[in-house]
């Protein structure tokens, strides 16, 4: 079945996704800036599933390195899942451009730089799958997180274009739009229980949707309808709201 490359492997969501693919027989590349932090997870997956796990040091913000980084991977992956995400601080990002830039570069520019390289390889090989974990926050800008949201919106549009391009080569591109997920990133928030998924649920959904060849996945499923409602609120009304 080959390797699945998990980018941004330090996150809770990535951990769950890596375990899910390993459980289903894939070997795993775990990529993050600090591979030391990934060692417990690598051991864990190897013990639970007896699959091969390799750690790869990758800085998503070091755009120039991506071409060589990918070239050096000996056995090219059968698929890639990108779980890179940086929520940042909205108010800090308003005051201080470097914070805004970090949000944009982490959630968008860096991934574009990496995905361009991988997409070219998959297109040549006429095989592979690309899973991008975007966010429902990208569907409408809200005052509480619109810098993060706008980077995710850009990422969603990028994935849509990539899917359109790679369709002809038989390469699958899946856009994942999670709603609330109970992770370290959201631990300080008071999230409504019924709209909040555990990372393991999200991972199962992603695996199933990817294997079925789906294009867009909302998880939990009801977020498709929640976002339909939120998108349909007229702008003159929306601008007065606090949601």
């Amino acid at each position: 079945m080959g390797y699945v490359l998990i980018v941004g492997a330090k996150s809770d969501m990535a951990k769950a996704v890596a375990r899910e693919y390993a459980k289903n027989g894939y070997d795993i590349y775990l990529a993050a800036r600090d591979t030391e932090m990934l060692k417990p997870l690598a051991k864990d997956i190897a013990i639970r599933t007896e699959c091969n796990v390799q750690l790869l040091a990758l800085d998503i913000l070091d755009f120039e390195s991506h071409q060589n980084w990918y070239a050096e991977i000996e056995e090219k992956p059968a698929g890639v899942v990108c779980a890179v995400g940086y929520l940042g601080e909205q108010t800090a990002a308003q005051e201080d451009f470097p914070e805004a830039k970090k949000i944009i570069d982490t959630n968008y520019t860096g991934i574009v730089s990496l995905f361009n390289v991988i997409a070219n390889d998959f297109e040549r090989r006429k095989e592979g799958f690309i899973v991008g974990i975007s966010s429902v926050a990208g569907e409408r800008g809200r005052k509480s997180n619109y810098i993060y949201g706008s980077a995710k919106a850009a990422f969603t549009a990028y994935l849509s274009g990539l899917r359109n391009r790679l369709y002809a080569s038989g390469v699958q591109v899946l856009t994942v739009k999670p709603g609330f997920v109970a992770t370290r990133m959201t631990a300080h928030m008071d999230l409504p229980k019924h709209l909040t998924a555990a990372p393991e649920e999200v991972a199962k959904d992603i695996f199933r949707a990817q294997q079925k060849g789906k294009d867009i996945l909302y998880t939990k499923w009801m977020w498709r309808w929640v976002m339909l409602v939120i998108r349909s609120i007229p702008e003159f009304q929306f601008k007065k709201m606090s949601i």
Partner: peptide, 12 residues
């Protein structure tokens, strides 16, 4: 302190 997510098997 939520310890449940600290859940790796380290050696067997």
């Amino acid at each position: 302190v939520h310890t449940r997510p600290y859940d790796c098997l380290l050696a067997f």
